[in-house]
Computed example of a mutant assay.
Amino acid sequence: MTTYYELTGFQRDLLEAIAGVDDEPYGLALKDYLDERYADPINHSRLYQNLDRLAELDLIARDELDARTNVYTLTDAGRHLLQRHADTLASLCDQPRHVVGGGRQ
């Protein structure tokens, strides 16, 4: 099974984008979602190569929306991977932080 940290940062961001797009998560909607978060525009080739890789890893499913457009959804494995990471981040935020000199923040 693929772990979250075996994915590239861009692939992890794609999983988040698929989960976060309000409308149908098709290629250009995912590109728009990521373009808002990245300093440089996302290259189409990079986008689709990484979507293909996530599909190969069975983390996303690709279905035909119409004759020219695919829609991408998280599989159970992709949803589980993203949820585990979200849980890890949430638990880290709940932990007390120590600062230099022994004080607590």
Rank of each mutant, 00 (worst) to 15 (best):
Q11N: 05
D40W: 03
N43A: 07
G102S: 04
N70G: 03
D13G: 08
I42W: 00
Y33P: 00
V71T: 14
R37M: 08
A86F: 07
I42Q: 01
G102K: 04
Y5D: 10
H44P: 11
L14G: 13
Q83T: 14
D35M: 04
R104V: 13
I60V: 15
L65G: 01
V100W: 04
F10C: 05
Q11M: 13
D58E: 15
D63R: 11
D76Q: 10
D23F: 14
T69I: 12
A90K: 07
Y72D: 00
I60T: 13
V99T: 04
P41M: 06
D40A: 11
L28K: 13
G101S: 04
E6P: 00
F10E: 13
D58Q: 08
T8E: 12
V99W: 05
E6N: 13
Q95A: 15
Y4P: 12
R104D: 08
L59Y: 01
E6Q: 15
D87Q: 13
S91L: 05
D63V: 04
V100P: 04
D94K: 10
R53N: 07
T73Q: 06
L51K: 05
Q95G: 01
Q49K: 14
A67F: 10
L81Q: 12
S91N: 03
T69R: 13
G101A: 07
L7G: 03
S45R: 15
G27M: 09
L28C: 05
D76W: 03
D35L: 10
Y33G: 01
G9P: 04
R84P: 00
V71S: 08
D66T: 02
L81R: 14
G27C: 10
Y48R: 12
L47W: 04
A61C: 12
M1E: 15
L57Q: 08
D66W: 09
H80E: 14
I18Q: 07
E24I: 15
A29E: 15
D32N: 10
L51G: 07
D63N: 09
V100I: 12
Y4E: 03
T2Y: 10
Q49Y: 11
D22V: 04
I18G: 05
E64H: 05
A39K: 10
G27Q: 09
L28H: 10
G78E: 02
D22F: 10
S45K: 12
L14I: 15
